[in-house]
């Protein structure tokens, strides 16, 4: 009887693992396919039945990509933008999050609710006016054209605010009694304590900026300012029927962000798992 029950448990465990493995397999399938197709010679992907393992391994597609576009430059653009947007937005949003979470001031609640409800407005509405503003400032084709509009995020402020609310006021009071200024408290206490949520946001901002397509396409009119996705979309437009080449392009676009994520995922996951701090 007991043995039977143990067997049942093991069986359930195996079935459970199989199910999850299958699900993760399906999730990863597009990536695997992308990778394998990208090392096929032109034309091999358009055969039936579909083949996963390349009959002939070749790096031609990658060679072609590196020959044709200034990948280094576009990579650098993407990197500079992603890093600066992340850095600046973390600072500005955490300041605001602290302001909302730990102070009471006139009009705070309505202001906060107003901010929250405006998250519903689709960003596309603002595209033309923002474009015109940037143009007046002479910021088209500069990194600032992407950094400035990306500096503040209501969602980030909201998230930081929620997180900071979980930090007991008693901690801050103690510091105040020791004579710390508000800025010192922010810098010395709030920022270190908020590290998990900040790392989370940092990763998201980084990825969002890295992957963004439409805005850099419009703001960066000069080719040397193109980000990686824009440069590759440009290439795709010319080679829409060359599946293998496009896959290689996709691998190049995705790879850096995957690597960043793999390295940071420890912090990131810590961050999001700590997201609900117990008081």
């Amino acid at each position: 009887m007991k043995l039977n029950q143990k067997m049942r448990k093991i069986f359930i465990a195996i079935a459970f693992h199989l199910l999850i493995a299958l699900l993760s397999g399906i999730t990863l399938l597009p990536f695997i396919w992308m990778l394998s197709t990208s090392v096929m010679p032109t034309g091999e992907a358009s055969t039936f039945p579909p083949t996963l393992v390349p009959k002939k391994f070749t790096l031609d597609q990658y060679r072609f990509l590196f020959d044709r576009i200034n990948l280094g430059r576009h990579f650098l653009n993407s990197l500079i933008l992603a890093i600066s947007v992340t850095g600046v937005s973390l600072l500005i949003n955490s300041l605001a999050g602290y302001g909302f979470a730990k102070f009471s001031f006139k009009g705070k609640r309505p202001l906060f609710i107003f901010l929250l409800s405006s998250m519903i407005i689709p960003a596309q509405v603002t595209m033309l006016p923002v474009f015109l503003i940037l143009n007046k400032m002479g910021l088209l084709n500069t990194y600032f054209g992407i950094i400035l509009p990306g500096m503040a995020s209501i969602f980030a402020i909201f998230l930081i605010n929620q997180y900071l609310k979980g930090i007991p006021d008693s901690l801050l009071e103690a510091a105040k009694i020791d004579g710390a200024s508000h800025f010192t408290i922010y810098w010395r206490i709030i920022l270190p304590l908020a590290k998990p949520v900040l790392v989370t946001l940092a990763l998201f901002t980084f990825m969002g900026t890295w992957n963004d397509f439409l805005w850099p396409l419009i703001v960066m009119t000069k080719e040397e300012m193109y980000t990686l996705p824009v440069a590759l979309a440009n290439l795709f437009g010319e080679h829409a029927q060359d599946v293998e080449l496009m896959m290689a392009g996709s691998v190049i676009t995705i790879l850096p962000i995957m690597i960043v994520f793999m390295f940071l995922q420890k912090y990131y996951i810590q961050g999001i798992l700590l997201g609900g701090v117990k008081e």
Binding site: A21, P50, N211, S250
Partner: peptide, 30 residues
């Protein structure tokens, strides 16, 4: 598993659209 499930989130849609268009291909799609 966590990494596998989270992978799609971090990738650029422009890039994965290419592979999905291919997966959905009526003749050669998986």
């Amino acid at each position: 598993f966590r990494l596998a499930f989270f992978m799609p989130v971090v990738t650029s849609l422009v890039a994965v659209a290419v592979v999905w268009r291919y997966l959905y291909h009526p003749r050669f799609g998986v």
